[in-house]
Design a binder for these strands. Structure first.
Lengths: 168, 168
DNA sequence: TATTGTTATACTCTATAACTATA
DNA sequence: TATAGTTATAGAGTATAACAATA
């Protein structure tokens, strides 16, 4: 615990954390993202690729356009990511017989295997990042973060890479 | 709160948050960073520039090399950032009389004024990001994050942009 | 020789916009 | 005419490495 501090006169100032909570969030979040990127590099993947694979695993057969919309990015960006993943043999663009304009994206067997390995890495990552906290603290942290995420309108499971800021 | 959920038989599975804590950290952290970037764009600044200005304000006269080391980036990257800030009139490269190889970086008056405005924006940002939490919850979140940051060896006040991962 | 800063260069990521094919 | 996907292109950001000035 780091909450006990001398509660003297300058209490208001002492209570104020040296850097704001929002800064800490950004700092620790970026660190977590960087460590995760490091871990999955052993699979030859970058975080965006893992995100795509995860979304397809969750809903097989979805189109590239639907990925672009959910991620809030432009369709041409999906093309590059899907190209690479297809090149690695992790997913396949299947033709949709009823509407041949779009691609029904599917994980290959190898893609499924990679996802299984990825889940192991993610669990280890979680443990490494939260090493300072016991189980109750982790649960508490999760609920606080979930409350912020919900209030801020974040889509569960979607990392806001550095999306285009809404035009001013 | 989002912690109450049907506690039935698959309890172990149900207790496990839908996405891990580390993912939530990265997600909320990236969101906070993006909202901050949006806010300071009204000052014509990007987050990296604010970071440089803040470090110089905290210790005037420091060299570009010391910034590069503390941030964990390559010196040539500092050149570009300092170039832009100097071009905007927010900081000055003063010659160090005792060792003319390095620059003693100083904020200009205008740079100081911009930093004052920035602090106002940061406070508003903090409030907006933490809107879902009351004061006690914010303090608790801060202490949990600070514990993680300390255990992970993060330098206080230094955002790990996306630094070069340590060579494997 | 070592150090500080700079420049030149190449590479990656990403958005924009024009294009193809289907509907 | 509208939609899914693709390609071509350009811009920003960043690391590498060679270089100049100073110690």
């Amino acid at each position: 615990m780091t909450t006990h501090r001398p509660t003297g006169r300058d209490e208001a100032a002492a209570q104020r954390p040296p850097r704001g909570t929002a800064f800490l969030l950004a700092q620790v979040g970026a660190h977590a993202a960087a460590r995760f990127a490091e871990r999955i590099s052993e699979l030859g993947l970058i975080p965006a690729e893992v995100g795509i694979l995860r979304m397809i695993a969750a809903r097989p057969g979805r189109s590239q356009r639907s990925l672009a919309e959910e991620l809030g990015v432009v369709p041409s960006r999906i093309v590059a990511l899907v190209d690479r993943l297809e090149g690695k043999g992790l997913l396949a663009r299947a033709r949709n017989p009823t509407d041949r304009r779009n691609h029904a994206l599917q994980l290959t067997a190898e893609g499924g295997a990679v996802m299984a390995r990825m889940r192991g890495l993610a669990a280890a990552h979680e443990d490494q990042i939260c090493a300072a906290l016991d189980d109750a603290q982790r649960a508490h942290l999760s609920s606080l973060l979930a409350a912020i995420a919900a209030q801020q309108g974040l889509t569960p499971g979607v990392h806001p890479g550095y999306q285009q800021p809404p035009p001013t």
